[in-house]
Design a binder for these strands. Structure first.
Length: 782
DNA sequence: CAGTGAGCGAGCTTCCGCTTGACTT
C-alpha cells in the first residue's frame, strides 16, 4: 500500500500521473463531482441562510466508498482536482466526505500533465481556498434556484406539459435561436447592381491573359444602365497599379468551443459527435484534455511542436507564439487541446482519425510562421467617363502555416460573395485593354444565417454562458425539450435582373437563383418561441444576455473574499422569488394565440395557437355552442408565420373522396403522415400523393393491394378469440390483440392445421417463458 | 399506428457542471 493517496478528477489523468510519481503514490480519480444538492425542496434551506443539503448521488456511491477505504489506509492525502472553481469545490466535498480537515489537507494544482509540472506541484502544496469553494456553492445554488423555480411555472402555465424546463443557460440558448428566427422573418432584402468587367490583354511578357475588374455598385437598375450606356464605345487603360504586402497569422490552438466549430465546418460533425470522438482520443492518450477553455500550451508541448515543424518543413517555418485568451470567463484549468506526441500521425481509432488530424494540423499551425501575401490592385480608366474599375489579385509569397492548415469561416463572416481572390496577371501601367463584356448583376442583401450547433456554442461562449463541459449537453437538452429542432430548409427560387454590355449593345435579362436554403440548422419550434416570450415577459433579468456575466462578477467577489456567498444569493433570490410568486398567481396561460381572420363560411374567428398536443389552428371559440374545429400545423409551419389561406387549407382535411363497397373513403393526415381510412381500416399514403388533391380512383388500388397482401399473410383467423395466425418475415406467428407470440419451430410447418386449444397453449407457454433478454435482466439485477 | 384540443389535480417532472461507464436490440 502506497503512503500517499492523490486524487484527481479524470481516470485517464490518474493513470498518467501514477506513472510519473512512482510507487510512493497511489493515484485515484473521483470522476468529477461526488456530491450534489438533494432534489427534495430544492436541497436548500432558504430560511436558514440558503444552507445547502448535499447527498452522494447513487452512481457515485461506489467511488466514494472506495476512496474512503483508501483514505483510511493512507498517511497523506493530496487533492489534485482541477484548478478552477468547480475543481476547488470537488476537493472540498472530498474533505467533507472523507472526513479530512480542509485546513490541513494538501491541495495541489497543475495545468499540464508533464513530469516537471507535477513534481513541482507536489513540492508546493497549498491549502484549500474556501472562498473559491463558496463562489462555487453560490453558483450551484443559484442555478438550482433558477431551474427549480422556473420549471414548475412552465408546468403550470403551459398547455403542453411534457417535462418542460427552464434554466440560466438553456433558456438563453433558446432565446438566441428564437431571436435569430424573428430577425430572418422580418428581414426585407434590398438589392444593388454590381458591375463586373471582363478584359483580355497581353501581359508584360506578351502572353494572352484574361481577368476581371469590378466597378461601383448601383442602388437601382437605372443607375446601372446609365453607367453601362456611358461605357459604350469606350477604351480602357491601366491607370495605376499598387502592390501591397500583407500577412496572415495562424489561429490559436483548439479549445472545446473552437474544436466544435471547426469540426462542424470542416467535417460536418455535430457537437456531441465531436466530443465523443475527442473523449476516445483522450482516453487512449492521443490528445490532451478535451474540455478546456485555454489556448495555452505547455513548455514541453511547445518543444515537441517546434521540433516537429523543423523536422517536417524546416526552421524557417517555426514561429512560436503565446496565445492569450480573449474570453474573460475562461478559467484555464487545462491546456489547449493538442496531440500528446506530435510525431504520431495515425491513431488506431478509425472513426477519430479525421478529428485527430484536424487537431494535429491546428496545433502545428499555431506555432508556424505567418503567411506572407502580396496584394495587387490595378485601377482601370474608362475613356468615356470618369469612373475607375478595380482589378485585384493576391499572390502567396510564403505559405507559412497555410502549408498545413486553413481555418474555415462561418457564413456570416464572409465578405461579399467571392472572398478568395485569385491571381492578377502582371500588367503595365498605361497599357490598353480589350473589354470582352461588362455585366451588371442584381444582388440581394441577406439576413443573418440560422445558427448551427457550433455557431450557437460560439455565441454562448462569447456571452460567457455555459462551460466547455456543458456546451454539447445544453444543445441536447433544448432539442430534447422540443424548444429547438435541427433540420434542413429548402430554398426558394427568386428572380434577379442582369444587364450585359457586349459589342456596344446592352441586353437585359431576368435570371433565377435559389436562395434561403439551409442545411442542419437550428430552428425554434412554436413551443420554444412561446416559452421564450413568456420567460422574457416575466423574468427579463434572468433572460438577459448579460445576466451570467453579471453574476460571474459577483462570484469573483465571493472568490476574492469581498462578498459573503449567502448575501449574494439572497440579493438575487428575494426579488426573484417575488416575480416567481407573482407570475404563478397572475400570469395567464401561455398560448401564443394569434388572430388570422374570419372564416367566411361561419363568420367565426380563425386563430393559431398552442394546444395540448402542439401548435394548431382553430375556427370558433370553445365557449361557443358549437364545438370549434381544430387542425394541427404541418411540420414546417409556425404559429407566427402561417397565413390565413394556409390555415384554411389545413381544414380541408379530412376529405371524403367518395364511396367504395358501400362505405366512405376519406383521406387525412395523422400522427404518421397522410393516410386513407376505409371501413375501419387505415392505409398509408405514399409521398407522391398529395392528400389535398388525391382522387378516389387513385387510392382504390392502394386499398385493394394492401388487402390482398394481408390476405396472403393470413394463415388462419379465430374470430371469437380475436387470435390470428400470420406469416411474417421469420415464419408463421400468433397475433392476439396487439401482442405477438412465437410458434415453436417443430410446429411451424403445420401452422395451418393448428386448433384454437393448441394455439392458446402456445400463448400460455410463451408468457411463462419470456424471451432470453428478460431472463438475463432479472438475473443480473439480483 | 391514424386521437386529441378543457380541466380536475394523483404523482411526477426540473437546474448547471464535474466526470465516465453499463446497459440492450
Amino acid at each position: 500500500m502506497a503512503k500517499n493517496l492523490l486524487i484527481v478528477e479524470s481516470p485517464a489523468k490518474a493513470k498518467t500521473i501514477e506513472k510519473i510519481l512512482g510507487k510512493d503514490f497511489e493515484v485515484k480519480s473521483c470522476f468529477g463531482h461526488i456530491r450534489d444538492l438533494e432534489k427534495d425542496d430544492m436541497g436548500i434551506d432558504v430560511q436558514n441562510n440558503f444552507q445547502p443539503r448535499y447527498i452522494v448521488p447513487e452512481d457515485k456511491e461506489k467511488v466514494v466508498k472506495e476512496l474512503k477505504q483508501l483514505a483510511k489506509k493512507s498517511e497523506e492525502i493530496w487533492l489534485a482536482t482541477d484548478e478552477d472553481r468547480e475543481g476547488e469545490a470537488i476537493s472540498w466535498h472530498l474533505c467533507e466526505v472523507l472526513g479530512l480537515d480542509p485546513s490541513l489537507t494538501k491541495r495541489i494544482v497543475f495545468h499540464e500533465i508533464t513530469k516537471p509540472a507535477i513534481e513541482s506541484a507536489v513540492k508546493n502544496p497549498r491549502k484549500l481556498d474556501l472562498n473559491l469553494v463558496n463562489a462555487q456553492q453560490a453558483r450551484r445554488i443559484l442555478d438550482r434556484i433558477v431551474g427549480f423555480e422556473l420549471s414548475p411555472i412552465l408546468w403550470r402555465k403551459m398547455s403542453m406539459k411534457n417535462n418542460l424546463s427552464a434554466g440560466r443557460v438553456q433558456s438563453v440558448a433558446v432565446r438566441i435561436i428564437a431571436e435569430r428566427e424573428r430577425e430572418i422573418n422580418a428581414f426585407v432584402p434590398s438589392s444593388t447592381f454590381r458591375i463586373d468587367a471582363f478584359f483580355t490583354a497581353k501581359d508584360i511578357t506578351g502572353k494572352a491573359v484574361s481577368f476581371k475588374a469590378e466597378g461601383s455598385k448601383y442602388n437601382n437598375e437605372d443607375g446601372a444602365e446609365k453607367f453601362l450606356q456611358s461605357c459604350i464605345g469606350a477604351n480602357y487603360k491601366v491607370a495605376d497599379i499598387q502592390v501591397k504586402p500583407s500577412k496572415r497569422t495562424p489561429p490559436a490552438p483548439f479549445t472545446t468551443s473552437t474544436l466544435q466549430q471547426e469540426a462542424g465546418r470542416k467535417l460536418g460533425y455535430g457537437v456531441s459527435r465531436t466530443m465523443i470522438l475527442a473523449q476516445k482520443l483522450y482516453e487512449a492518450g492521443y490528445i490532451s484534455y478535451m474540455r478546456t477553455d485555454s489556448v495555452s500550451l505547455s513548455e514541453t508541448a511547445m518543444e515537441n511542436i517546434t521540433g516537429q515543424i523543423g523536422a517536417e518543413y524546416g526552421k524557417k517555418y517555426i514561429q512560436t507564439r503565446k496565445f492569450k485568451n480573449k474570453n474573460e470567463s475562461a478559467q484555464e484549468a487545462h491546456e489547449a487541446i493538442r496531440p500528446t506526441y506530435m510525431d504520431r500521425r495515425q491513431v488506431d481509432i478509425p472513426d477519430a482519425q479525421k478529428l485527430y488530424e484536424l487537431i494535429w494540423k491546428r496545433t502545428m499551425a499555431s506555432q508556424m510562421a505567418d503567411a506572407e501575401l502580396e496584394k495587387t490592385t490595378a485601377r482601370i480608366s474608362i475613356s468615356t467617363n470618369k469612373d475607375l474599375l478595380t482589378a485585384s489579385g493576391e499572390v502567396l509569397k510564403f505559405d507559412g502555416f497555410l502549408k498545413v492548415y486553413m481555418e474555415s469561416r462561418d457564413e456570416d463572416e464572409e465578405e461579399g460573395d467571392e472572398k478568395t481572390e485569385g491571381m492578377l496577371p502582371p500588367l503595365a501601367v498605361g497599357q490598353d485593354l480589350n473589354l470582352k463584356e461588362m455585366k451588371a448583376t442584381e444582388r440581394f442583401s441577406r439576413p443573418a444565417p440560422r445558427y448551427t450547433e457550433a455557431s450557437l456554442v460560439k455565441k454562448l461562449e462569447e456571452l460567457g454562458i455555459g462551460r466547455p463541459s456543458t456546451y454539447a449537453p445544453t444543445i441536447s437538452t433544448i432539442l430534447k425539450r422540443g424548444y429547438v429542432e435541427k433540420r434542413d430548409k429548402e430554398g426558394v427560387v427568386r428572380d434577379f435582373r442582369t444587364l450585359l454590355l457586349a459589342k456596344d449593345k446592352i441586353t437585359k435579362k431576368t435570371e433565377q437563383e435559389n436562395t434561403g436554403a439551409e442545411k442542419s440548422k437550428l430552428f425554434p419550434t412554436d413551443l420554444g418561441l412561446v416559452v421564450t416570450d413568456f420567460l422574457i415577459q416575466h423574468f427579463d433579468d434572468v433572460m438577459d444576455y448579460g445576466f451570467t456575466a453579471r453574476i460571474e462578477n459577483e462570484f469573483d467577489e465571493i472568490a476574492n473574499g469581498k462578498v459573503k456567498w449567502n448575501k449574494m444569493v439572497d440579493d438575487f433570490y428575494t426579488p426573484f422569488k417575488k416575480d416567481v410568486d407573482n407570475t404563478m398567481e397572475t400570469a395567464e396561460r401561455i398560448s401564443g394565440e394569434r388572430d388570422l381572420g374570419i372564416d367566411p363560411a361561419t363568420g367565426k374567428k380563425v386563430i393559431a395557437r398552442m394546444g395540448r398536443f402542439g401548435p394548431m389552428v382553430q375556427i370558433g371559440d370553445s365557449n361557443d355552442e358549437e364545438k370549434p374545429r381544430f387542425a394541427k400545423l404541418k411540420q414546417e409551419q409556425s404559429i407566427e408565420t402561417i397565413s390565413f389561406d394556409e390555415a384554411m387549407e389545413l381544414f380541408k382535411l379530412p376529405r371524403v373522396l367518395g364511396e367504395f363497397e358501400g362505405s366512405p373513403v376519406s383521406v387525412s393526415i395523422g400522427r404518421f403522415g397522410p393516410y386513407i381510412a376505409h371501413d375501419k381500416q387505415f392505409y398509408s399514403l405514399a409521398k407522391e400523393f398529395d392528400p389535398y388533391s388525391v382522387m378516389l380512383d387513385e387510392v382504390l388500388p392502394i386499398i385493394v393491394e394492401k388487402r390482398q397482401a394481408k390476405l396472403e399473410r393470413t394463415i388462419k383467423v379465430f374470430e371469437k378469440e380475436k387470435i390470428q395466425l400470420l406469416r411474417g418475415p421469420y415464419g408463421p406467428y400468433i397475433k392476439k390483440g396487439l401482442r405477438n407470440f412465437p410458434i415453436p419451430k417443430e410446429q411451424q410447418e403445420k401452422a395451418a392445421d393448428l386448433g384454437i386449444e393448441e394455439v392458446k397453449k402456445m400463448i400460455e407457454e410463451a408468457i411463462a417463458n419470456p424471451p432470453k433478454k428478460n431472463f438475463r435482466k432479472k438475473k443480473a439485477q439480483k
